[in-house]
Structure formats: C-alpha cells, structure tokens
C-alpha cells in the first residue's frame, strides 16, 4: 500500500509509546489457577495443631504453600481460586490433617466400550 500521512502519524505514535510501561505485575497473572487442580486439599480440624491449640502455632501449610493460597488463620483456609492442588501442604503437615481428595464426580451412564473409531 502507498503510505499516507495517517500511516506516518500512527506509526510515530507507536514509536513514541514506551511499550514497557504497559507491562505491570498483577495478581493471578496465569489466570484462575484453581482450575489446574485434580486433587483438592481438605483440612481435618480434629487433627490440625493450629485448630487444636487455638493459637497460630504450626502453620507449616501456610509456610510451604508456593502459591500463597493457605491463610495464616485459625483454622487455616485454602484459597481454591488459586490453589493448584500440588499437595505440598498435605505432605508437609506433621499430623496429616490435610487430605488430598479427587475433584471429580461420579459417572452417570454407560457407553459402547472398546469400540473402534
């Protein structure tokens, strides 16, 4: 295309915008990472040191969570929007108070098994 004055003005505008200023940090940059989960951490209050003592004592789950999705409350609360279900909290919990349970539901109907396509 033959270049016009409009092309020049437009390109000049792009050239004089520092695109780096458009890059900013944000919460949830990778989107709703809770969707990544296949296993969900569930807290059993009866085993949790924090709950039993009623004090902010153990909180290893909070400390080890790589995604800051476990709160430092009594009892600790999981943020399921961003929890990826990595299971580190469950592994680190000294009293096995955190259980990883599958996310899925039960099947509903039968199909044609072993068919070719």
């Amino acid at each position: 295309m033959v270049r016009t004055k409009q092309d020049d003005a437009f390109e000049k505008n792009v050239a004089r915008t520092i695109l780096a200023s458009m890059q900013t940090p944000a919460v949830g940059e990778a989107g709703n990472t809770g969707e990544w989960r296949t296993m969900r951490p569930i807290l059993h209050n009866d085993l949790c040191i924090v709950v039993k003592s009623g004090k902010p004592t153990c909180h290893l789950c909070w400390m080890y969570c790589p995604e800051i999705t476990v709160s430092r409350e009594i009892p600790p609360v999981f943020n399921y929007t961003y929890c990826k279900g990595c299971g580190i909290c469950a592994t680190e919990c000294p009293t096995k108070a955190i259980e990883m349970v599958p996310e899925k539901e039960a099947p509903s109907c039968e199909g044609n098994e072993g068919g070719e396509f």
């Binding site: 199909g111 044609n112 098994e113 072993g114 068919g115 070719e116 396509f117």
Partner: peptide, 9 residues
C-alpha cells in the same frame, strides 16, 4: 484403555 474406551455410536 484400548479395551475400555467408549466410542459414541
């Protein structure tokens, strides 16, 4: 998996 895969009719 080959045996149990369900193919729609």
């Amino acid at each position: 998996a080959a045996k149990t895969a369900q193919v729609d009719e």
